[in-house]
Each structure stands twice: as structure tokens, then as C-alpha cells.
Design a protein around this nucleic acid. Sequence first.
DNA 1: CTTGTAATTAGCGTTTTTCCTAATTAGTCT
DNA 2: AGACTAATTAGGAAAAACGCTAATTACAAG
Lengths: 101, 101
Amino acid sequence: MNEVFKALSHPTRRKVLAMLRERPMASGEIAAAFDVAWPTMTTHLTALKDAGLVTAEREGTSIRYRVNASVMEEAVAALMELMGAGKDAEATTNTVKGEKS
Amino acid sequence: MNEVFKALSHPTRRKVLAMLRERPMASGEIAAAFDVAWPTMTTHLTALKDAGLVTAEREGTSIRYRVNASVMEEAVAALMELMGAGKDAEATTNTVKGEKS
DNA sequence: CTTGTAATTAGCGTTTTTCCTAATTAGTCT
DNA sequence: AGACTAATTAGGAAAAACGCTAATTACAAG
């Protein structure tokens, strides 16, 4: 859980998550969108992967990254617990009004 | 918002928030609970205050820190938006089942 | 005004993070 | 196999985060 918040603490990594939310993307495609060197993006992606926030899988010639929604939900739940949502936290997290979950 | 996630990325600071959630506390009282030097805790508290996550106000001889719930809620909303809750985010955040809000 | 307590600021060394370029691995395709 | 592309690993430099001790400020109260 610690690694999750650490991963979320960098703006670029949060933007990557926002992008991946729309659609899974390849490493190079992500790097190209961010004005950083490719190896730098690899580092960020590794941080996100180690935190469990994304998963990576080979797709032909490239490697596709996608968001791991459940870990994102856990992060939200943890934050809510921190702010006093207490026992309602997980219930509430799963009850995002119109979600395809 | 960036500072908020930065502040949340340190375990000690999250624990402080959890403590402050129960009741407002003085700086020294917090420091005493954490096996770190007092000045170190001051640094953490400053980070939390700069992020807007807590407020500080003098109370007689000591300085009392308390959680700023609204900024905590904003953080949750931001996270949820990141994970795809989209426009429902704030509505959901304010609808924590049995909360005294 | 002086003493005492609460808390912050200064200064410093260590560790971690971040980002880069160059080199390397992994897999594809002819 | 050999050439090509996608991505990661190596190595290193610069910046930021952490946590400490010592010094200082801020109040309160005798």
C-alpha cells in the first residue's frame, strides 16, 4: 500500500494512469506522449507496476500496459478510511453510481 | 493537488492524519507518539499544512493541529476521477453512507 | 524581566528519487 | 542467420526528501 501512494505521488505517473484509463497503451506510445526519454518512462512504468497499479503484457512486437482497477479502488478505500469513512469505505467504493465495474 | 499526493506518500504523515482524524492534537503530542525527533515531526506537519491537509492554530501554550476534511475529500475525488469515476466523483464522495459530514 | 516549555528554524550528512545517455535484451520478420 | 524495432537494464549525475542535533523564536507565567 505504501508503494501505491509513492507511485501516485509523481505527476507524470498520475497522468499515465489517466491516459491508461481511456485505453491500454504500449510503453513507447506512452513515452512519446510525455516529453521524457524512453528509459525514464520505463522507470515510471516499473514503479506503477511494482505498486500493482498497472499490468504489462506482451502484445506482438510491443508491450501493452493497462490499469489495474482493483488496486486503484483499494487506494481510494485506504484514503477514505484515513479520512474517517471507516467501515463504509469498501461498500462505498464499489457503489460508484453508474459504473460498469 | 500535487503537494497533496506528495504529502500522502509518506507513511508517518498518513498515520498522523489517521490520529488527527480522531481528535486534534498538539505538535509535541504527535511527535511523542512516533519515535522521531520533534523537529522531524515539525517537517512532516509542515508538509501536511502546505498541502492543506491539516490546519494549525495556537491554543494557549501549544499549537493544535486538526485535519482539513475538505482537502481530504478533494484528494479522494481526484483519485476517483483518475480511476474513471468521472463526473460522478464528487457526488459519490459526499454520499458516504452514514456519515455526520 | 526572567525562567520555562512548546515549537520551529538552521545547518548538515545520508539516502532516495529522478532523469539522462549508452549498452543490452527480447522478439519480429525477411 | 541478420537486420530492425520495442523496451529494459546499466551507470551516473543532480536534485529532493529525511532525519538528526543545536540554536532560536514564541508565549505564558511567576
